[in-house]
Design a binder for these strands. Structure first.
Lengths: 341, 341
DNA sequence: AGATTGATTGAAAGCGCTGTCAATTACGAT
DNA sequence: ATCGTAATTGACAGCGCTTTCAATCAATCT
């Protein structure tokens, strides 16, 4: 139904080769003929068929983005960043989620081996050996986002969570004189949780503070679970003058709300901090002291890196590190340089 | 580089036709040959080339999702719903945003005329004549999501915002005895704003309440702008015993926080309600009375409708209406059947 | 004028796959 | 054995595009 290159050629009274040339390397065709062809193209509303083109060129100008999940602002910001950058660079983005009902590996291989996408940005939140093996089998160029794929010699963009987390811990300990810090993390196997917890332990050790394993909780990053935990523990925490370091803003919000529910005031009686610096952080009262993670940049940088790789397949792998940093608001005591939003 | 159908044929000692047959209609080929071919396929790790296939079949199994924006939970939930459904039905999803730097029309036409996607879900938040014209030029099957594309005879899924909004207004007026309701909407041309405002006006009229045009504000759906407005107006609103009907939860949250900032208590001094029932609604204190909009269903249903259309191109257009409904929490007075989350 | 060059164009060979149609084979019936 | 029929397979023509490679033509040079 749609016009083909042949239709254009007939209409413009040239061969399809010529049409193809004005499409791809317009400069090498005579001005007059080019004009004729261009008019024909416009009149027929002609668009090259992606498949035919892809078949010849073996490329689609489509990039894949594979995420562990699509839930929450974290991922949606990554998508946004990736999508904008992709468009800027002339690519389309295909988003897939590995979580939920979809079997992760099947999705990944669908996106990749398909041969459809020119490259993939993969975000793996839980690196197990299976995931590594899957990754190893992927023939399409890809970059790893925020996954510590150890020893895998690949392009990657990671956030230096350690830095932000340590900054936060130091703030709690040095500026706020915290003695007792409770860590509320996501699942044990989750990469971000592992990193943030490592920073927690390390800083505690450096400051000669004991870490009681009872002070470490593994939830699922959700407001609800954190709220429930808060309801149960918040009194106890208040008595022990605890600081709560939640591994994301949502859980921090849940704990704050639990405190309010239990008539425990924040930051006077307990202090709560978050991670990610999502919009939630400015919507809680008090606003969250948290660690800013450049979410949309992550997506954008990963796409950019991927495109560079596509241009220079032989280039040695690059690792881009994005920095996270402390943002002080009010959920952890009188602010020093607090930002309103 | 990757194995082609010919490689498989050679390896299995059959013709490419036979390989193609085992790929597509396995039953019509002899068991023994089929086994041979299957082994060859596995050994070569063969995957049919999407482009070649697409070229023949003129279909890609890719669906496009075009959104006005990618910002915020509303869209991310739609993506999630659409993505899951698409996968369930054997499709891949390609997401595009029309907002931001991307010129909307170019994106739309890129996604559509490209011929890449088999169908599109388009969400248009601001229907102007230009948008309509663009839509009219799209040859790929598409369904319109949440856009009142008047008189355009198309598959569409819309939310019955009117219903939810009216329910809300009635709740305010009848149960809460509101006399003075302020409407805080998004941009004037935004479809959702238009609908919600219409319901507002209509209910006010029915209840013989005056609507002062000074009580209608058009912001941009953001927390920040609403917060600023709140800071300015909240005292005044408290004095006039106003109810604030915000057109989304984010703005409602902004206003509540402004009230807190100004030491005005919610819901005692002013009452604020939202729209959408995003996660924000349970994170504010007090929690938001709001209108629940089935966001992820919207995405899912739109995709499902689109796939049906692809199967039956000649079927008369279908319009699916999703219902929105009032969710009573605490931001508007003592709750009657309030839910905790 | 005849030859050489460069600019411009067209013809045709695929890219990897599907589907049509004809050819081959197997097998039971005559 | 011979035939008819059904089951199975292969040859080949495209799908719409890019890209050599050769052909054409005008312009320049000897």
């Amino acid at each position: 139904m749609p016009a083909s290159i042949e239709d254009v050629a007939k209409k413009a009274n040239v061969s399809i080769s010529t049409v193809s040339r004005v499409l791809n390397r317009r400069n090498i065709v005579n001005d007059k003929t080019r004009k004729r062809v261009e008019i024909a193209i416009r009149e027929l509303n002609y668009r090259p068929n992606v498949f035919a083109r892809g078949l010849m060129l073996q490329q689609s100008n489509i990039l894949g983005l594979v995420l562990p999940d699509l839930h929450g602002e974290f991922y949606s910001e990554i998508i946004r960043g990736a999508n904008n950058k992709a468009h800027d660079l002339g690519y389309q983005l295909m988003v897939s989620s590995v979580g939920g009902k979809n079997d992760g590996h099947s999705v990944l291989s669908a996106v990749s081996n398909h041969g459809l996408v020119d490259g993939i940005v993969v975000m793996v939140s839980e690196i197990d050996s299976k995931a590594k093996k899957t990754l190893a089998g992927v023939t399409t160029p890809f970059v790893v986002l925020d996954g510590q794929v150890d020893r895998v010699n690949h392009d990657s963009v990671v956030i230096d969570q350690r830095h932000g987390a340590e900054e936060m811990m130091k703030h709690l300990i040095e500026d706020r004189h915290a003695k007792n810090i409770v860590f509320v993390g996501g699942p044990k196997t989750n990469i971000d949780t592992i990193d943030r917890l490592a920073a927690y332990r390390e800083t505690m050790r450096q400051s000669s503070l004991d870490v009681d394993s009872k002070d470490i909780y593994h939830l699922d990053f959700s407001y609800e679970k954190a709220f429930d935990l808060g309801i149960e523990k918040v009194k106890e925490w208040a008595e022990s003058e605890a600081f709560i370091f939640a591994a994301n803003d949502e859980m921090a919000a849940g704990i704050i709300d639990a405190a309010i529910e239990k008539n425990i005031s924040v930051p006077e009686e307990i202090r709560v901090v978050g991670f990610d610096d999502t919009r939630i952080a400015i919507m809680t009262r008090p606003r969250l002291t948290t660690v800013h993670v450049p979410m949309s940049s992550m997506g954008a940088q990963a796409v950019e890196l991927l495109c560079q790789r596509l241009k220079e397949p032989e280039r040695p792998p690059v690792k881009i590190t994005l920095h996270s940093n402390l943002v002080i608001r009010e959920s952890c005591g009188t602010s020093r340089g607090a930002s309103i939003y």
